[in-house]
């Protein structure tokens, strides 16, 4: 990883290059800037939320190189050279994928604030668990706080998505739903 460091008005900046939702980006960032702030404020991708600042709530989860991470607990400079995916990169042309569709049908969200982070975690989870048990789904969601739903409808939605993915023989839940 090669980082270009330069000074402006007494502040160090580092140049980073990364792919965000399939698009190549280059930016000069202060080394201290959190990844979540870089995504929200610099890239204007505000679907990623900031709920607790301490890595507890999960609203800021995105995927870096295909793995879910809490973007409040990483620095922007750490994703130099990485492939970043946010909620904005999940559905294409406004078409919900199978998981999103199931969350909608099962009322798996209310205020929606925790939802993008949950989706980013669940998409990775479902890639590695074709037929998860309820306990496994609940364990997967443990890093995400939700104050509205009580989680049960989210769990129902994930199970529904698994069944639907199997029916359509679509291993990739990122494929848009035909519904």
């Amino acid at each position: 990883m090669q980082l270009l460091i330069f000074m402006r008005e007494g502040t160090s900046f580092m140049k980073i290059s990364l792919t965000v939702n399939g698009t190549q980006n280059t930016a000069n960032v202060e080394p201290r800037i959190l990844l979540v702030d870089f995504i929200r404020d610099t890239l204007n991708l505000t679907g990623t939320k900031l709920g607790c600042d301490t890595g507890q709530c999960g609203t800021c989860v995105i995927q870096v190189n295909g793995k879910p991470v809490k973007s409040c607990s990483m620095l922007a400079v750490q994703v130099d050279g990485c492939d970043v995916k946010t909620i904005e990169g999940v559905s294409q042309h406004g078409q919900l994928n199978t998981l999103q569709q199931s969350l909608w049908e099962k009322h798996g969200l209310q205020c929606g604030f925790c939802t993008p982070g949950m989706i980013m975690t669940l998409l990775d989870f479902l890639q590695h668990n074709e037929d998860p048990s309820e306990d496994e789904i609940r364990s997967c969601l443990e890093g995400h706080l939700c104050r509205c739903t009580g989680y049960h409808s989210v769990v129902r939605a994930v199970r529904d998505a698994v069944v639907k993915a199997r029916q359509t023989q679509s291993a990739d839940l990122l494929v848009g739903s035909a519904d």
């Binding site: 204007n44 505000t46 929606g112």
Partner: peptide, 21 residues
């Protein structure tokens, strides 16, 4: 009925106050 506000939220497109610039 399903909530009509959900698709926007599910895609991270629903504007909360902190999202406004």
């Amino acid at each position: 009925l399903k909530s009509r506000e959900d698709p926007q939220m599910l895609q991270g497109e629903s504007p909360y106050t902190a999202d406004i610039k």
